[in-house]
């Protein structure tokens, strides 16, 4: 197909766009929706890569992405947020325009870093390694600059999305066993973190992680 690479490029650009949108959003529910969209784009791009490379394994990991990241995790997170009443996360450590600027610097850094690496890859999607790296770094930035526990978990999950995208674009995906293991880890991780949310709220009556610093013994 002549259009595979341009479409993949477009999807990769969408992924980066969504990462930036996540950085700029204040409402937690919007973040979860954006996370679901990110998963959907990941699903599409994985399907395309599977189709163009002829690797049937990739279809399974695409289906896994669809089930887990587009349907299951957003549902769980929405229910958690409703139960916790944690719809708002207006508090950021750094204000949003500055965060966006930092994000821009990170993107430049990631693109520069990925340039020599992608020269060595042989896949058709090697140029996207830079974008995958940028998505990872941006999710990292989101985890650092947000104070509420729920948003940090969403940042963590978005980072996993970026890693998955990096794996697909650099080496046509990880072995199936590894991928299944990661998927299970993420699912269990969200359950455990959900339990933690309730514990944290019970202890401090808020999900603000600054309170955790009080636990330190001098």
């Amino acid at each position: 197909m002549p259009y595979t690479v341009p479409i993949l490029n477009l999807l990769a650009a969408c992924l980066l766009l969504i990462s930036f949108a996540m950085l700029s959003r204040r409402r937690t529910q919007r973040l979860v929706n954006l996370f679901a969209w990110q998963g959907a784009i990941l699903f599409l791009s994985t399907c395309l890569v599977a189709h163009s490379s002829g690797l049937h394994e990739l279809y399974y990991s695409a289906a896994l992405t669809l089930l887990l990241k587009v349907i299951a995790l957003p549902l769980i997170l929405h229910r958690l947020i409703n139960r916790l009443g944690a719809q708002w996360d207006s508090e950021t450590v750094v204000n949003i325009p500055l965060t966006m600027l930092a994000g821009l610097v990170l993107v430049i850094f990631a693109f520069g870093l990925a340039q020599p690496i992608s020269m060595m890859a042989t896949t058709i999607t090697r140029n996207m390694l830079g974008i995958a790296l940028a998505v990872i770094l941006l999710s990292f930035l989101m985890m650092i600059t947000r104070r509420k526990a729920v948003t940090q978990v969403i940042g963590f999950l978005a980072m996993e999305n970026g890693l998955f995208f990096a794996a697909t674009s650099a080496t046509y995906g990880m072995p199936m066993v590894v991928e299944l293991g990661i998927a299970l880890d993420v699912l269990v991780g969200v359950f455990i973190l959900g339990l933690f949310f309730f514990q944290i709220r019970e202890q401090f009556e808020s999900l603000d992680l600054r309170n955790m610093e009080n636990l330190k013994e001098d």
Binding site: P97, L101, F111, G130
Partner: peptide, 24 residues
């Protein structure tokens, strides 16, 4: 409003960067 417009400026700059990385 400055935040909103700064975001659109950043997106445009990002477009330039993406073009340099994987431009057709």
């Amino acid at each position: 409003a400055p935040e909103y417009l700064a975001m659109s400026f950043l997106l445009a700059v990002l477009g330039l960067l993406v073009h340099l990385l994987l431009g057709a």
